[in-house]
Design a protein around this nucleic acid. Structure first.
Lengths: 224, 224
DNA sequence: GTGTTATTCAATAAGTCTATTGAGTATTAG
DNA sequence: CTAATACTCAATAGACTTATTGAATAACAC
């Protein structure tokens, strides 16, 4: 009888684990860590049908991981709590460190990652203080507005190729994006290096930065 | 085609989430956070058949969460990494803070938890330094040997009722066990308070203690 | 009111997960 | 060698999960 209650307790906790135990839902969560979004935005960003995305989002909601708020005709989903971002970070960290399969998949998705220079937050700080380093946020503008690293300039990957000529030449360009499972910063860095400029990649995204105890900057709460 | 690779990456990470997305496997993990164990020990502690426990353990192993090592005729399973304990702690924390259902299940499993005094690590340190506080580890001896809080005395719940008379009367007794989802410390504290002694419960277990940056003590690596 | 857009719901077929059973394997003891 | 112990494997039925479809609802513009 104690056993029944105990089983029930673990069953409840397992509900949360079941909510994240699906690749599509992890991808949705990864997007929501960057910024709140509507169902349609999430569906198109993750290549799901609207109905399918909606159902996955409701599963995440039932698991207490995200919150959906109706705003006129759309429903805007966001993380229920920063602890959810920590859970996602921790899961990713266990996955990449313990499963060789994940490392291999990551090498496929980000083939250049071993050839790029990487930079730590401390080195980045020092360079920005010296004034010889520029930090580029290459995520979509929507995500930049929801929160970005202090001093970062928003140059979404989409527009980089046309704006490349604008960039000065005597700087070290540090690119970052959603975090270690995102290839935007690699793509951007590739273009920057190809143009003859110097650059490095920061593996951390906004969530990892925040979890490491640093502040993030926010421009507008109504980012759309 | 980029999409295929990306999906594959998230699928790999989801494998780890799927490994913990089952109440029995969470219970096994919760046991393994306390100490390594054989299949038989795990099966009996979690009320599973041997074959079933073995299969769940192999699923956890495939997910990279635990490691099994043959030692003579038995196979001893242990956590693959401390990061796994962090993942479990983080999952539990999201579950308890975001799902009212979990709080309700916890109230059923630990009905006295709101009536007991709780104590923080800082208060505990102060009391132990003053010499008026005794810290009791009420988990099975096996788990105490695998690692325990510094200065804790091992009094497994099983033997407490017969040893209760031995305990001095002029101390504050602080009980702890596996962590917030464990009722051992509540049971023990109930007996201690009923005997007229003063006491409080420490919610943290060894894993949470360690994750908070404190040291743990270990007696023997061959604890059996 | 009608029409439009964004989202959710319900039904369903195909796929995946689980507990149980009984057989199979590895190690040790004698 | 045989027997015993501890564990794993394979097969399977029943239970859940998932993607797709098309219908239903909610908010708004007019």
């Amino acid at each position: 009888m104690n056993r029944t209650i105990k089983s029930h307790l673990f069953q409840q906790v397992a509900q949360v684990a079941q909510a994240i135990a699906n690749p599509h839902r992890l991808e949705l969560l990864d997007l929501l860590v960057q910024s709140p979004r509507s169902v349609e935005q999430l569906a198109s960003a993750s290549a799901l049908s609207i109905a399918n995305a909606s159902q996955h989002l409701q599963r995440l909601k039932r698991g207490g991981l995200i919150i959906g708020e109706r705003q006129g005709t759309t429903v805007r989903y966001r993380l229920a709590d920063q602890a959810v971002a920590r859970l996602w970070t921790e899961l990713r960290s266990v996955a990449t460190s313990q499963l060789a399969e994940v490392e291999r998949a990551l090498d496929q998705y980000r083939p250049q990652r071993h050839s790029f220079a990487t930079i730590t937050p401390a080195e980045l700080w020092a360079g920005m203080a010296r004034g010889d380093t520029l930090l580029l946020d290459v995520r979509p503008a929507l995500e930049y507005h929801a929160g970005h690293l202090p001093g970062a300039v928003s140059i979404p990957l989409e527009g980089l190729s046309t704006r490349l000529a604008e960039l000065p030449t005597d700087f070290l360009f540090v690119t970052y994006c959603r975090g270690p499972l995102c290839a935007y910063a690699d793509d951007a860095l590739g273009q920057i290096l190809a143009s003859g400029r110097r650059g490095a990649r920061l593996e951390e995204g906004v969530a990892e930065w925040q979890q490491a105890g640093y502040q993030v900057e926010q421009l507008s709460l109504l980012a759309g």
